[in-house]
Measured scan of single mutants.
Amino acid sequence: PEDEKKAKEALKRANGDEDKAKEILRKLGVDPDRAEELLRRLR
Protein backbone atom coordinates (compact mmCIF):
# COMPACT_ATOMS: atom_id res chain seq x y z
CA PRO A 1 0.00 0.00 0.00
CA GLU A 2 0.94 3.64 0.40
CA ASP A 3 3.37 3.08 3.28
CA GLU A 4 5.15 0.38 1.34
CA LYS A 5 5.69 2.74 -1.59
CA LYS A 6 7.06 5.32 0.83
CA ALA A 7 9.40 2.75 2.33
CA LYS A 8 10.79 1.73 -1.06
CA GLU A 9 11.24 5.37 -2.00
CA ALA A 10 12.93 6.14 1.31
CA LEU A 11 15.35 3.25 0.89
CA LYS A 12 16.18 4.45 -2.60
CA ARG A 13 16.78 7.99 -1.37
CA ALA A 14 18.91 6.68 1.48
CA ASN A 15 20.98 4.54 -0.91
CA GLY A 16 19.98 1.40 0.93
CA ASP A 17 20.92 2.82 4.33
CA GLU A 18 18.13 1.55 6.60
CA ASP A 19 18.74 4.03 9.40
CA LYS A 20 18.51 6.92 6.99
CA ALA A 21 15.43 5.39 5.41
CA LYS A 22 13.82 5.09 8.83
CA GLU A 23 14.54 8.75 9.48
CA ILE A 24 12.99 9.72 6.14
CA LEU A 25 9.88 7.65 6.87
CA ARG A 26 9.57 9.24 10.30
CA LYS A 27 9.61 12.66 8.67
CA LEU A 28 6.89 11.48 6.28
CA GLY A 29 4.75 10.66 9.28
CA VAL A 30 5.06 6.89 9.20
CA ASP A 31 4.95 5.27 12.64
CA PRO A 32 8.51 4.22 13.62
CA ASP A 33 7.52 0.63 14.43
CA ARG A 34 5.64 0.37 11.15
CA ALA A 35 8.62 1.84 9.30
CA GLU A 36 10.92 -0.72 10.88
CA GLU A 37 8.60 -3.55 9.89
CA LEU A 38 8.29 -2.30 6.31
CA LEU A 39 12.03 -1.96 5.88
CA ARG A 40 12.59 -5.43 7.31
CA ARG A 41 10.14 -6.83 4.79
CA LEU A 42 11.86 -5.03 1.91
CA ARG A 43 15.29 -6.29 2.97
Rank of each mutant, 00 (worst) to 15 (best):
K8R: 15
L39I: 14
L42V: 07
L28W: 15
K22T: 05
R13L: 15
E36T: 08
K27S: 14
R34W: 14
D31I: 04
L28E: 09
D31M: 09
V30G: 01
K27H: 12
K5T: 10
R26V: 15
D3M: 12
A7N: 01
L38S: 02
A14W: 03
D31N: 10
E23S: 07
P1K: 13
I24L: 10
K8H: 10
E18T: 10
G16Y: 11
G29P: 00
L39Q: 00
L11I: 06
A14T: 07
A10K: 01
P1I: 14
A35W: 08
L42R: 03
D33S: 12
L42D: 01
E18V: 15
E23P: 00
K22V: 08
P32I: 10
K8V: 13
E4K: 07
E2L: 10
L38R: 01
R41M: 12
K20G: 06
A7S: 03
E4N: 07
L39D: 00
D3T: 05
E9S: 08
L38D: 00
L39V: 06
R40P: 01
E37H: 07
E37R: 06
E2S: 13
L11K: 02
A14V: 06
R26C: 07
E18F: 15
L42N: 03
E36P: 00
A35F: 08
A10Q: 01
R40V: 06
I24H: 04
L39E: 00
L11P: 00
K6E: 07
R34E: 08
K27D: 12
L25A: 01
D19M: 13
D33M: 13
A21T: 03
E36Q: 07
P32G: 11
R41H: 09
K20H: 08
A14L: 02
E23D: 10
D17L: 04
E9P: 01
E37Y: 06
E2Y: 09
K27L: 15
L28T: 04
N15F: 11
P1D: 15
D33V: 13
D19G: 12
L42Q: 03
R13I: 14
R40K: 11
L25R: 00
L39N: 00
K6F: 13
I24Q: 03
V30N: 01
E2M: 10
L11T: 01
L25N: 00
K12T: 09
E23V: 07
E9D: 11
P32M: 11
E18Y: 15
D3P: 04
L42W: 05
L42F: 08
A14N: 02
G29F: 02
R43G: 06
K6G: 04
R13S: 12
R26H: 11
R40L: 10
E9W: 15
K22D: 02
A7L: 07
R40Q: 09
E36H: 06
E4L: 15
L25V: 01
E18L: 15
R26I: 15
E36V: 07
V30H: 03
E18D: 05
A35Y: 05
D3L: 14
G16S: 03
L11M: 10
R26D: 05
A14Q: 02
A35H: 03
N15A: 09
K12Y: 13
E37M: 08
L25I: 02
A35C: 06
E37V: 08
E2H: 09
P32N: 11
L39H: 00
E36L: 08
K27R: 13
D17N: 12
K27A: 14
A21S: 02
R41N: 10
E18S: 08
E23M: 08
K20E: 10
P32E: 12
K8Q: 11
D19W: 11
K8L: 14
E9M: 11
K8N: 05
N15T: 03
G16Q: 04
L11D: 01
L42E: 03
K6D: 06
D17I: 04
L39Y: 03
A21E: 01
A35P: 00
R26Y: 12
L28A: 10
L38P: 00
R13A: 15
L39A: 00
E37W: 06
D31W: 04
A7F: 05
L25G: 00
V30W: 14
D19A: 15
L11F: 07
L28D: 07
D17Q: 05
E37D: 08
A7M: 05
L25K: 00
E37Q: 10
R41D: 06
A7Q: 02
E2A: 11
L25W: 01
D3Q: 07
D31Y: 04
R13E: 14
K6Y: 13
R40G: 06
K22G: 04
A21W: 03
E2I: 09
L38E: 01
R41A: 11
I24C: 05
L38A: 04
G29W: 00
A21H: 00
R43Y: 06
E2T: 12
R34D: 08
A7K: 01
R40E: 08
G29Y: 01
D19R: 14
E2P: 09
R34S: 08
P32F: 07
I24G: 02
A10N: 01
K20T: 09
K20D: 06
D31P: 15
D3W: 15
L25C: 03
R43A: 07
K27M: 14
E36R: 07
D17F: 04
E18P: 12
D3A: 07
R40N: 09
D3F: 09
V30R: 01
R40A: 10
R26M: 15
R13P: 01
L28N: 06
A7V: 12
R26K: 13
K20P: 01
L11Y: 07
P1V: 13
L39P: 00
K6Q: 13
A7P: 01
E23Y: 05
R34G: 04
E18I: 15
K20V: 14
L25Q: 00
E23Q: 09
L39C: 03
D33H: 12
R43P: 02
E36K: 07
E9L: 11
K12V: 10
D3G: 06
A10M: 02
R43S: 07
G16I: 01
E2W: 12
P32D: 11
K5Q: 14
K5C: 06
K8T: 08
P32S: 11
E18W: 15
D33I: 13
A21V: 03
D19K: 14
D31A: 13
P1S: 15
R34T: 13
D17W: 04
L11E: 01
E18R: 11
D31K: 08
I24D: 04
K5N: 11
N15D: 09
L25M: 06
K8E: 08
R40S: 08
K22L: 14
G29E: 02
L25Y: 01
R43K: 10
I24S: 03
A35N: 01
P1G: 14
K12G: 06
A7T: 05
R26N: 08
A21C: 04
E4M: 15
R41W: 11
A10V: 04
R26W: 09
L39T: 01
K12L: 14
R40T: 06
R41T: 06
K27C: 10
D33Y: 10
A35R: 02
A35I: 15
G16H: 04
I24N: 03
E23N: 06
E4V: 14
V30K: 01
R41V: 05
I24F: 10
A35T: 04
D19S: 13
E2G: 11
D31Q: 10
A7R: 01
E4D: 07
K6T: 11
K22P: 00
P32T: 09
E2D: 14
R34N: 06
E4H: 10
G29Q: 03
R13Y: 12
V30F: 15
P32A: 12
K6W: 15
R13K: 12
R13N: 09
E9R: 09
I24T: 04
A10S: 04
P1M: 14
E18H: 15
G16K: 03
I24R: 03
L28K: 04
L39R: 00
R43H: 06
R41Y: 08
G29K: 03
I24W: 07
L28H: 05
A35D: 00
N15Q: 10
R41Q: 11
K8P: 02
D33W: 12
R13M: 15
K22N: 05
R43Q: 08
A14K: 01
A10W: 02
R26G: 08
G29S: 03
D33N: 11
D33T: 12
K20R: 11
K22I: 12
P1H: 14
K12M: 13
R34Y: 14
I24A: 05
K8I: 15
E9V: 09
R41I: 08
K27E: 14
P1T: 14
K5A: 14
A7I: 08
D19E: 15
E9H: 11
K27F: 10
D17E: 04
L25P: 00
K12D: 10
R40W: 05
K6L: 15
K12A: 12
V30T: 03
N15M: 11
G16D: 04
E37K: 07
A35G: 04
A14Y: 04
A35K: 00
E4R: 10
G16T: 02
D19N: 13
D3I: 09
K8F: 12
